[in-house]
């Protein structure tokens, strides 16, 4: 860097102070978009996974379709959606839900299929009906796989939100892009670090939630 240029540090507290409003707006958009997408995807994934399990003939197409959609790049998906759903939040949300849905359906289905048949047999012997079987036996047994899927979906969603920049709604990606455009290192670095931190916080929260939901898993480790 030549002597005449102003300093352009990677980290700068002045940047954070001066852009506090933009940073918090981007962070809160990023956070709410992620939570909304994962919750919506879960609400859709459970019935789909149950349907695929109830009709094994549907399981193949459901998993195959999810695999095929997975190879569609996020930029392409947003580009295909944008002409119909417009520029902005809705397009990003639909794309995010689609990707998260794939991971979740797959993991819920695999989790449910992985339940020990002897356990199901024992529950049936105890007189459990289908609903009670699902809620009291199958779901708790499938929970580790489901939680793993939710973690994977959440962390990838946090990263995917940034691609929303192409339709003008990328959360922290918006700041990354603006920093790139203006050659402002502190802006690029701050938003990248925040994005990584956000993924980490979500992941830790889900690990703790998983532990709270599965006290038996912890006891087994302790024993």
């Amino acid at each position: 860097m030549s002597a005449g240029q102003p300093p352009n540090p990677w980290l700068s507290w002045t940047y954070v102070e001066h852009n506090w409003g933009d940073i918090t707006t981007a962070l809160s958009r990023h956070t709410t978009l992620t939570i909304q997408a994962v919750l919506l995807a879960m609400a859709l994934a459970f019935p789909l996974a149950l349907l695929a399990r109830a009709r094994p003939r549907l399981a193949g197409p459901v998993l195959g379709l999810s695999g095929a959609l997975y190879t569609v790049p996020s930029l392409a998906l947003f580009a295909i959606l944008a002409p119909f759903t417009g520029i902005g939040r809705t397009t990003v949300l639909i794309g995010l839900v689609a990707y998260a849905l794939l991971v979740l359906v797959r993991n819920i289905l695999v989790g449910l299929q992985g339940v020990d048949p002897d356990v199901l047999d024992a529950a049936r012997g105890l007189g459990y009906g289908p609903t009670r079987m699902l809620l009291a036996v199958e779901l708790p047994n499938a929970l580790p796989t489901i939680v793993a899927g939710v973690r994977l979906a959440t962390v990838s969603t946090v990263a995917l939100v940034t691609v929303g920049v192409v339709v003008g709604y990328g959360g922290l990606g918006q700041l990354m892009f603006r920093g790139f455009r203006s050659g402002y290192r502190a802006e690029v670095m701050t938003s990248s670090l925040l994005c990584l931190a956000l993924a980490l916080v979500f992941d830790l929260a889900l690990v703790l939630l998983g532990r709270a939901l599965m006290p038996w898993a912890r006891r087994r480790v302790a024993a």
């Binding site: 940034t162 691609v163 920049v165 790139f180 050659g183 690029v188 990584l196 993924a199």
Partner: peptide, 14 residues
């Protein structure tokens, strides 16, 4: 998994 490609690209660019 957690690192957005856009973050890496814009970091590189800067």
């Amino acid at each position: 998994r957690a690192m957005p490609t856009l973050a890496l690209l814009t970091l590189f660019a800067s």
